[in-house]
Computed example of a mutant assay.
Amino acid sequence: MSDNQVGLVDFAMFRPGENVGTSEWVTVDQPMISGFGDITLDPDPMHVDPEWAAENSAFGRTIAFGFLTMSLLTHLLHSAMGDSNDREHADVGYFLNYGFDRMRLVSPIPVDSRVRGHFKTLENYTDEKDRQMVKFECHIEIEGEERPALIGEWLAIWINK
């Protein structure tokens, strides 16, 4: 087995410096934002109360939670890669989030905005514990805006069974 292949998963597809892809557009609407507030137990009116936000927020309307923006990364990456999250290689192992080396929430996402993700492989290596690591550059674009919602470096790790 090569250094870039674990079980049936071919890590050679993650070539440093190459674009992974761009996702489809996703609309961030009020039900999504409010649902995120509900499940994270965060009732902040800047996010979940359109009337309050219109009257009191500098943005004039609700905005997505920053952690909601971050949580969209998995969906956006799968979309960019043109695959699903079906765990087809679960018999040999699985990917897990390992964290972030750098993450910035550059601009808030106003309600009813469309976003998409752009991904590039920065690194693909085996760490000191012989685990396969992939580092992605991430950029979440807000349609019609110059500044991105998010930029960061996201780490994934392959866990063998």
Rank of each mutant, 00 (worst) to 15 (best):
E55K: 13
E55H: 02
E55P: 04
N56R: 07
N56V: 08
N56G: 08
S57D: 09
S57R: 11
A58G: 14
A58Y: 00
F59S: 04
F59T: 10
F59K: 08
G60N: 11
G60S: 06
R61F: 01
R61I: 04
T62I: 05
T62E: 06
T62M: 08
I63M: 04
I63W: 07
A64G: 06
F65W: 02
F65G: 07
G66C: 10
F67P: 00
F67H: 13
F67R: 10
L68N: 01
L68Y: 10
T69I: 08
T69D: 09
T69Y: 06
M70F: 05
M70W: 01
S71Q: 06
S71Y: 01
S71D: 07
S71W: 06
L72V: 04
L73D: 06
L73Y: 03
L73H: 03
T74H: 13
T74V: 07
H75D: 00
H75A: 00
H75N: 02
H75M: 02
L76K: 09
L76F: 08
L76V: 02
L76A: 12
L76I: 03
L77D: 06
S79E: 13
S79H: 09
S79D: 11
S79L: 07
A80N: 02
A80P: 05
M81N: 02
G82S: 12
G82F: 13
G82N: 11
D83V: 00
D83R: 11
D83M: 14
D83C: 14
D83L: 05
S84G: 14
S84E: 05
S84W: 10
N85Y: 11
N85S: 10
N85L: 12
D86H: 13
D86E: 14
D86M: 11
R87F: 14
R87L: 12
E88I: 14
E88H: 04
H89C: 12
H89A: 14
A90L: 14
A90M: 11
D91W: 13
D91H: 15
D91G: 09
D91S: 15
D91L: 12
V92G: 12
V92Y: 14
G93E: 01
Y94K: 02
L96D: 00
N97Q: 02
N97D: 12
Y98G: 09
Y98E: 02
Y98F: 12
G99M: 09
G99L: 02
G99T: 01
F100S: 07
F100W: 12
F100G: 00
D101H: 12
R102Q: 08
R102P: 03
R102M: 02
R102N: 10
M103R: 00
M103E: 08
M103F: 03
M103D: 00
M103T: 12
